[in-house]
C-alpha cells in the first residue's frame, strides 16, 4: 500500500509541477489543483496508513485501533483552503485575461 500511495503522490506532484511551469494560465490552475491533491495526500500519509480504523470513538476500543486524527484534521482544512485559493486563482486568471487580452502567464504571447 505504502509503495502505491507514494508512487501516486509522485505522479500527482510531478504532473502538477509540469503544468505549473506551462505558459497558459489554465494549465497553471490545473497544475495547482493536482499539486494540492499530492500535498494533501502527503500530509495525510505522514500519520501512517490504517485500514478500517476510523477516528470515530467506539465503545471498548483501545487507542491503538484508531487512525491518526491529527493529519486528518490538518488536511481537512487544507482541502477547504485549497478550494479557496483555486477560486482566487481562477478569478485572477480571468481578470488577467480581461486586462491583457491573453491567457499567457506573462500577460503577452512572447513565447509559445
Amino acid at each position: 500500500m505504502e509503495l502505491v500511495l507514494a508512487l501516486a503522490i509522485g505522479v500527482l506532484g510531478g504532473s502538477g509541477v509540469w503544468l505549473l511551469l506551462r505558459p497558459r494560465t489554465f494549465q497553471v490552475v490545473m497544475g495547482l489543483t493536482l499539486l494540492s491533491y499530492a500535498v494533501n495526500l502527503f500530509i495525510f500519509c505522514v500519520g501512517g496508513l490504517r485500514l478500517g480504523a476510523d477516528p470515530v470513538l467506539r465503545e471498548g476500543a483501545g487507542l491503538i485501533e484508531y487512525a491518526d486524527p491529527l493529519p486528518q484534521a490538518l488536511v481537512l482544512t487544507a482541502i477547504v483552503i485549497g478550494f479557496a485559493t483555486t477560486a482566487l486563482f481562477l478569478v485572477v486568471l480571468l481578470a488577467s485575461r480581461g486586462f491583457t487580452g491573453s491567457d499567457h502567464v506573462d500577460g503577452k504571447d512572447g513565447a509559445p
Binding site: 508512487l7 510531478g14 495526500l41 502527503f42 491518526d68
Partner: peptide, 28 residues
C-alpha cells in the same frame, strides 16, 4: 519535464520514507 520528474521522484521518496517512519509520542 526534468524538473517535474525530479520533484515527483523526490515527493514519492519522501512520502515513502515518511510512511515507513514509526510515529512515536504523537500528540494524537
Amino acid at each position: 519535464g526534468a524538473v517535474a520528474g525530479v520533484v515527483g521522484l523526490g515527493l514519492a521518496g519522501l512520502a515513502y520514507a515518511a510512511m515507513l517512519h514509526p510515529v512515536a509520542n504523537s500528540a494524537s
